[in-house]
Design a protein around this nucleic acid. Structure first.
Length: 479
RNA sequence: CGAGGUGUGGCUCAGCUUGGUAGAGCGCUACGUUCGGGACGUAGAAGUCGCAAGUUCGAAUCUUGUCACCUCGACCA
């Protein structure tokens, strides 16, 4: 019995104003607050708990693959940042500089890290001496600063939390494998844990990370049809190693430069969760990262036996490793229903006198608000299965939205027609020239997102110049 | 960085045109009644009207300046 009636009048409807809807969710689900510095958000406990769950899952996977966590300084001397030409050109416009220590002017200004390639390279130059020191598989969790002009919670803030993996390898092949492996880790995490379908692919040369030979990314489509780059993985070749003079002795006692990768994902993923799964009643959280997976709401809590039954239920679920909250506050049940829907709790359990009499309780799934009347016997299995069902349902819903908003186009005019129908992914062939890429953007307003893995083809010729083309490109408006 | 918008109890806003010493709803606190989709009553606390100058007997209101935030574009995770 799905019920589409809008219960929470406080949130702007998605259809009315998607941007305002997004901001409302961030604030009203208690994810963030604004601070006194533009573009720097306070991540509140409920929002931070989501990040902690994301960290826990990814950190375990990184470590299973042999990566070690380290911590690098947050300051980079100007001279160090300047060592790799493309890199500094890419980042210089948006770095924040420290010029004073107390009242003393520094002899060399320090930039607040926008990313840490240069710091890792400097360190690697010191510790990598022999082929026996390779591979080096380091990761760090930290915040970085990029002085963005326009900012939005989670999607674009001046300081944001992320992880950055930086690895060094003996061969280009091994480094390339690492790059793709980590992209796959991100993709699996999005699809399985966040229930967000993604397209894996390569960035076009103009869209590569500053200093990278190849940049790979996963692209997700948000509910409004705009694309979000959810994570990236870069192959650097030995360019940075040469710029930073990182050399090691090979088995044959020759000097060689190692091959390098970096890969990262950020708190932006929380924005992706909001815009993929959220609805007009609020946030909808994937069970894997939801701070509260199940909320128990006692009905007529003052009646005999209700709180006892609710407490017993909580203990059972908790013992089954389910993140459960029993809300025993004196707010009305209706208020609580709305509150936890706003906060995106995947499953709600209602238990009242009538249920107890019938040895049952009511489960309500957040993503479709379907109600299930289930026996209290074996309730922990039933709830665990329901959480899986919620994840599957969320994924299917997100995939349906993406499919419905994906268009195949063979000419610029076809792209224009699809854009007129609404935002989404456009699949179209590309000859590989930057002129055509720019021309598509200029004429249609949508840009290239990625060249997906695989050899899918929708035509033999470029959507723009009509010359032979082998590469399929996903195009879209992006966040 | 360009274009718009907004700053008044915790939140959303009214009041500003035409200057006269600050209001509403929600929230909060206490007590009571309620409780299966955002309950109700009674009582109460809470605001240097973003900041700074200026005009004036008197400024939330007029003038000038300034700061911050939001939205949309261009650039970026």
């Amino acid at each position: 019995m799905a019920n589409d009636k809008k219960m929470v009048e406080a949130i702007t409807s998605m259809d009315t104003d998607f941007a305002q809807w997004y901001t409302d969710i961030c604030k009203k689900a208690d994810l963030i607050d604004y601070s006194s510095v533009k573009g720097c958000m306070i991540i509140r406990p409920y929002g931070y708990a989501i990040w902690e769950n994301i960290q826990a899952i990814l950190d375990r996977r990184f470590k299973e693959l042999g990566h070690e966590n380290v911590y690098m300084p947050m300051f980079i001397p100007e001279s160090l940042l300047n060592k790799e030409k493309d890199h500094v050109e890419g980042f210089a416009p948006e770095v924040a500089w420290v010029t004073h220590g107390g009242s003393e002017r520094l002899t060399e200004k320090l930039c607040v890290r926008p990313t840490s390639e240069t710091l890792f390279c400097e360190h690697y130059a010191n510790i990598i001496k022999s082929y026996r020191d390779l591979p080096k598989l380091y990761n760090q969790w930290c915040s970085v600063v990029r002085w963005e002009k326009t900012t939005r919670p989670f999607l674009r803030s001046r300081e944001f939390l992320w992880q950055e993996g930086h690895t060094m390898h003996e061969t280009a092949k091994e480094a390339r494998e690492e790059t793709v492996q980590m992209l796959n880790v991100y993709a699996d995490f999005h699809e399985n844990d966040l229930a967000i379908p993604v397209v894996k692919g390569a960035k076009t040369p103009s869209d590569k990370f500053a200093g990278a030979e190849d940049t790979y990314a996963i692209e997700a489509l948000m509910h409004d049809g705009k694309a979000l780059q959810a994570a990236t993985s870069h192959y650097f070749g030995d360019g940075f190693a040469k710029a930073f003079d990182i050399t090691y002795a090979t088995k044959e006692n020759t000097l060689a430069h190692p091959y390098q990768t970096s890969w990262g994902c950020t708190t932006r993923m929380i924005g992706g969760i909001i815009m993929t799964h959220g609805d007009d009643n609020g946030l909808v959280l994937p069970p894997a990262v939801a701070p509260i997976q199940v909320v128990i709401i006692p009905v007529a809590a003052h009646k005999e036996g209700v709180m006892e039954a609710a407490n017993a239920l909580r203990e059972k679920l908790s013992a089954h490793k389910i993140r459960v909250k029993l809300d025993d506050s004196d707010n009305s049940p209706g208020w609580k229903y709305a509150e936890y829907e706003m906060k995106g709790v995947p499953v709600r359990v209602e238990i009242g006198p009538r249920d107890i009499e019938a040895n049952q309780c009511v489960l309500v799934m957040r993503h479709n608000r379907e109600k299930l009347f289930v026996s209290l016997d074996g309730i922990e299995q039933t709830v665990a299965e329901t959480l899986v069902k919620v994840r599957d349902g969320m994924y299917a819903k997100a995939l349906e939205n993406r499919d419905r908003r994906t268009y195949v186009c063979r000419t610029i005019d076809e792209i224009k027609e699809s854009v007129a129908k609404g935002d989404g992914f456009v699949k179209a062939m590309w000859c590989g020239s930057e002129e055509c890429e720019d021309e598509v953007k200029a004429q249609t307003g949508i840009g290239s997102r990625c060249i997906p893995f695989g050899d899918e083809s929708v035509s033999d010729v470029c959507v723009c110049c009509q010359k032979p083309a082998k590469k399929l490109v996903y195009w879209a408006k992006a966040y």
